[in-house]
């Protein structure tokens, strides 16, 4: 092969390698989950109903064994997304169907309900403001928006129950807890939310994997004007 031919081959291969590397990095850095929009689902100023579920294993996708959140879109379909768009300065009524088991919290501080309307949440209809994570089945996850001081412990289900949900989306036929609380959305902006239970099993201190990947145990509350 001539020098020109070898050079062309080299440059083409180099371009392909660089392109693949850039694509891999960009794909890794921008998971780009689907945004579930609640801004048009109700009249202006009316409360937004946000229903989510937490599952011990998502059961599909790149990481089927990872713990995850799912959200019910305004059409009633369960969507694997953790980026939710809501209107600003609006009451958000949250219902969490919690299908995962629990454990004592690393920091019991996250057993304290904070930042909700009235400073309380409800567990299967019973109102509470502090949950002892050493009781019963412990806390499975927390729903927290740290920048606005919101935190609600999500109480774990009995891991020995015969009808635990193995893969999402789970239905209410499986053992679960229903947590309810409300809060007022802040001004426009993007507010990260996360879980304070280090539930990334197998990762150092439990905060890798699903805890460090958007679309599993963290996401954004995308507050629109």
């Amino acid at each position: 092969m001539s020098f020109g031919g070898r050079l062309s081959t080299f440059l083409v291969l180099l371009a392909v390698a660089v392109g693949a590397a850039v694509y891999a990095v960009v794909t890794f850095l921008t998971p780009n989950p689907q945004v579930v929009d609640f801004t048009g689902a109700q009249a202006v100023g009316a409360p937004v109903d946000l229903t989510v579920q937490t599952v011990g294993a998502i059961g599909f996708g790149k990481h089927p064994t990872w713990v995850s959140y799912l959200v019910k879109d305004p059409g009633g379909q369960w969507i694997h997304s953790t980026v939710w768009k809501v209107p600003a300065h609006t009451r958000i009524n949250v219902t969490v169907e919690q299908y995962d088991s629990g454990s004592p919290l690393r920091n019991q501080q996250w057993g304290l309900v904070q930042g909700t309307t009235g400073g309380t949440a409800s567990l299967n209809g019973t109102t509470f403001s502090v949950y002892n994570s050493y009781d019963a089945n412990g806390v499975g996850h927390t729903f927290a928006i740290p920048t606005i001081g919101l935190n609600v412990p999500l109480v774990g289900v009995d891991p020995n129950a015969t009808n635990t949900c193995g893969a999402a989306p789970c239905t209410t036929n499986y053992v679960h807890n229903v947590m309810r609380f409300s809060f007022t959305s802040p001004g426009p902006g993007e507010y990260p939310w996360q879980c304070f239970v280090p539930c990334g099993l197998g990762f150092l201190y439990g905060n890798g994997g699903p805890m460090s990947t958007i679309n599993y145990m963290g996401g954004f509350l995308d507050v629109a004007a």
Binding site: S103, P104, R106, G138, P198, C199, L201, F203, Y205, G206
Partner: peptide, 11 residues
């Protein structure tokens, strides 16, 4: 002392 093993309690 944090629990290095994951979600199981500790603090």
């Amino acid at each position: 002392v944090p629990d290095a093993n994951g979600a199981g309690g500790g603090y």
